[in-house]
């Protein structure tokens, strides 16, 4: 396996109101394989967002190391190349748009790193096409819906041609339609070969990844395929994590005495399993 992100014994603490250090990441080590789709889940305060911000040097390790595509994030001279290689999309689309015209907004990043104008045009067009927003190129971002704005924010990151895209709760502020649009784009980007890291509270979204990492109290509490992770439904329930509907219903039915397999992941599987009960 070729890893594109490498985190070695990462520790990070914030100072709280009283000036005391609160540990947020307590010795996290992980490798992320090139081209994979990894979801990171965990309750509030588990360190998910802090970990994400350490992946492209928005935050720097207080101890330990993070390598993005082989580059040490604590090496100042590599900062711009690291930020280009690992792009981030945040929760609130309104905080990520800077221009009054959609295509200017997408050109902003490439312009800043000195991409030649002809190539900028090309990058803007293909980024807009990738998120299905080509016909909105000349519009004002503030006239768009939340889901559309978030697609523009994604296009802005895509125009930097990153190898890795980190999504930090990209659907949290969207309605179900917007949420569906963004998840479809994330899956397309993964299919097209990007490495995708999705931080989410929604277990139904995490179920679509190849791998789920569960963080708790600044440590990795579980790491595996969705099927492996959801078969630990009792532990996840104990961690106050929301389970996908089918996983939660299966957990309750097992507790109610039904003999159902432990690794039920989808509604279809649960329906099948119920039908094969005697």
């Amino acid at each position: 396996m070729e890893s594109i992100i490498s985190v070695k014994d990462l520790r990070f603490a914030y100072e709280d109101e009283e000036g005391e250090l609160q540990t947020v990441l307590d010795g996290v080590s992980l490798e992320i394989e090139k081209g994979s789709f990894v979801a990171m889940v965990g309750p509030n305060g588990s360190g998910k967002s802090t970990l994400a911000k350490n992946l492209n040097a928005l935050l720097l390790p207080q101890s330990g190391k993070v390598y993005a595509d082989g580059m040490d994030t604590s090496d100042d001279s590599l900062l711009w190349e690291i930020r280009r290689s690992v792009g981030m999309v945040f929760q609130n689309p309104d905080n990520q748009l800077v221009s009054a015209v959609v295509e200017d907004d997408i050109a902003f990043g490439p312009e800043n790193i000195g991409v030649p104008p002809e190539e900028i045009r090309q990058r803007v067009d293909s980024a807009l096409e990738a998120v299905g927003m080509s016909r909105f190129a000349k519009q004002a971002p503030h006239m768009l819906s939340g889901g559309q704005k978030q697609r523009i924010a994604i296009a802005g990151v895509l125009a930097m041609q990153p190898d890795v895209m980190v999504f930090d709760e990209p659907t949290a502020m969207l309605d179900p339609r917007g949420r569906g649009e963004i998840m479809a784009i994330i899956e397309q980007l993964h299919d097209a070969g990007k490495t995708v890291i999705l931080i989410t509270h929604f277990m139904e979204e995490a179920a679509r990844a190849d791998r789920i990492i569960v963080l708790k109290d600044g440590k990795i509490a579980a790491d595996g395929t969705p099927r492996e992770i959801y078969s630990m439904s009792e532990q996840l329930h104990g961690m106050k994590l929301e389970l996908p509907f089918a996983v939660e219903l299966a957990r309750r039915l097992r507790a109610g005495g039904l003999d159902l397999p432990a690794d039920i992941l989808s509604e279809e599987e649960l329906a099948e399993a119920l039908c094969s009960l005697k």
Binding site: R252, L253, G256, G257, L258, D259, L274, L277, K278
Partner: peptide, 12 residues
Amino acid sequence: QEEILKLFGSKA
């Protein structure tokens, strides 16, 4: 949960 247990629970 209640409906499913009602239907399958008695048979299990």
